[in-house]
């Protein structure tokens, strides 16, 4: 058993024994005996089911914003990128600080394909990750390591950015055509927490009910704007999409724009709301 697993179990047992939290969201081994899945530990015995390894892909902070959980004190196991989600949620006052974040020094997560041939290559987000020790957590499991140089988060965008607007439009049109609007991308995203999503609002009905190219396009275009400056780049939306729409590309592009224009990297400040949610007087446009 790795030191990380031993450490997580000990911390969770302690939190549960002291009744500091009602339960802890972590990972356990999934039904294939290999890949991890989310697990909710309610008892000290259940803490011994928790695992942590390079298959722990899920961003568990999603569960914190579920309406069904309001009012509970919850522990959550976070990787560094997941911790950035938590920071966004705190900056947005999504909940009072009644969460205990158990940060884990991250070994990097492997890319799994659903075709059976499980690869061992690191995920795209991990290839450019420059933060292996989680920021802003209550408990740290693992040895904090010195971080290497800051990496180019946006290299993956280059081929698309080299294209003309018409080419890009054709590319996304083709991608969005496949979208089923199963909303798995939205449901897995910790930054997507609206009680009523614009995509399903009835009055007014912003997006038509039809599952077709135009409606899908609108859903994704608005969603990526809602995530601009808030998306922390976990790429979980891309991973869960059954029809392989490269949402990571879209959200990364918006992250880059926000970084360039506002020098704001989502999930690094809990004391400042993301730029697209705020307004400063000096930003006033001269529309005369």
């Amino acid at each position: 058993m790795s030191d990380l697993v031993t450490g997580i179990r000990a911390q969770v047992r302690d939190l549960l024994a002291r009744r500091r939290v009602e339960y802890v969201v972590g990972y356990e081994t999934g039904s294939d005996g290999v890949n991890a899945r989310p697990f909710f530990a309610y008892t000290t015995e259940e803490a011994d089911r928790l695992v942590f390894d390079n298959t722990c892909t899920h961003n568990l902070t999603k569960y914190l914003v579920e309406p069904e959980r309001r009012g509970s004190t919850i522990g959550v196991v976070v990787k560094p990128c997941d911790a950035r989600s938590l920071t966004v949620l705190l900056a947005e006052h999504k909940f009072p600080r009644d969460v205990v974040a158990i940060g884990v020094v991250c070994p990097g997560i492997v890319q799994r394909t659903r075709e059976g041939g499980d690869g061992e290559a690191p995920q795209a987000r991990c290839q450019v990750c420059d933060q292996h020790t989680p920021p802003a957590c209550d408990i740290l499991v693992g040895e904090a390591t010195a971080e290497g140089p800051v990496l180019d988060q946006f290299a993956r965008l280059a081929p698309l950015e080299a294209q003309s607007a018409a080419e890009r439009s054709a590319f996304w049109s083709q991608q969005f055509e496949r979208c089923l609007r199963c909303y798995a991308c939205r449901q897995t995203c910790p930054q997507c927490y609206c009680d009523e999503c614009f995509a399903e609002a009835l009055d007014p009905e912003w997006v038509g009910v039809r599952i077709g190219r135009a409606e899908n396009w609108l859903f994704h275009a608005i969603r990526c704007f809602h995530l601009a400056g808030r998306c922390i780049g976990c790429d979980e939306c891309e991973r869960v999409c059954p029809v392989k729409i490269p949402l990571g590309l879209l959200n990364r592009k918006l992250r880059k724009e926000v970084l360039d224009r506002f020098e704001y990297r989502a999930g690094t400040r809990s004391d400042e709301r993301p730029p697209l949610e705020t307004f400063r007087k000096e930003e006033k446009l001269d529309l005369a």
């Binding site: 989310p38 089923l180 199963c182 798995a184 449901q187 059954p242």
Partner: peptide, 13 residues
């Protein structure tokens, strides 16, 4: 259901 995300993927597929 604790870990279910409440998407519609299972039903659509």
């Amino acid at each position: 259901a604790d870990r279910c995300l409440g998407c519609k993927m299972c039903t659509y597929l």
